[in-house]
Write a protein that binds this DNA or RNA. Structure first.
Lengths: 132, 132
DNA sequence: CAAGTAGTTTAGAACGGTTTTAAAGTAAAA
DNA sequence: TTTTACTTTAAAACCGTTCTAAACTACTTG
């Protein structure tokens, strides 16, 4: 399925800008990135895009499930093209994230989900510190 | 151990402002809060404190391990007086956090820690969605 | 294909949480 | 007591993100 189809399937109009973003993000290689990272990459590929459009686009992609946003307490939003159920190592000094495939972690025991709610995804973060 | 001693043990001067914050946070009852929450509480207790001081104080407390900061991708930093190893439910609609005691989750399998690093804490976030 | 309309992009302003600045104040050390 | 290092503060600055409103573009309908 090409990117135009991916966008249409997700209910998004394949505008010029969204296609540029899709070409960068939906190429099968997973990565973590910020809005600014993405804008830089767009600029250095000879295109250009307003930062507002970058944010709009990321929000739409996220709401459609084409990308994810990672749970970290950093001051900048981090997005992830890996939409599979998975986890992360977090280097707290640098903020760097490394994927942990779902198969590499398994939970033996889970707490009872509060009344009236359902489990909508589990994220495990393993914080790393440099070993001296 | 009283709060003055706790501050000194942590290597912090027990200033008037830090004592006010300690009286609110280090009373044995755990809670999640933002800098603004804390300032409001200080104000409504008849004291007052500049927002810069609230932030300075929270940063110091955090670096000393008197409080923790929770990993969430919300736009406001969330702090936690519960410094024990524990986890959270996250209601993604409201941003509300609920503690999960460490005993309520157990991990069967862990990934290999990248070379040169050590495991510096695992945080599990279980995202909740309202059940209809 | 033309005209209409609903959705999208944009620059720039606004926003909100957090940090910095620099001056005044305070705790501890000498 | 004097000195020194640290702390607090209001206000400004900062920075990531969202809003605004006008121009533009993709799609629909006739």
């Amino acid at each position: 399925m090409n990117n135009k189809e991916k966008l249409r399937n997700a209910g998004l109009r394949p505008t010029k800008q969204r296609m540029i973003v899709a070409d960068i993000l939906l190429n099968g290689f997973n990565r973590h990135f910020t809005a600014e990272n993405l804008q830089d990459e767009i600029n250095s590929s000879g295109n250009s895009m307003s930062i507002a459009t970058v944010y709009n686009c990321l929000k739409k992609f996220k709401n459609c499930g084409l990308i994810k946003q990672v749970e970290t307490s950093k001051d900048t939003a981090i997005f992830d093209t890996n939409t599979d159920y998975h986890h992360h190592f977090l280097n707290e000094e640098t903020g760097e994230l490394i994927d942990i495939e779902n198969e590499e972690i398994s939970l033996r025991k889970l707490p009872e989900i509060p009344q009236g709610y359902i489990n909508n995804g589990i994220e495990v973060i393993i914080k790393l510190k440099r070993h001296n």
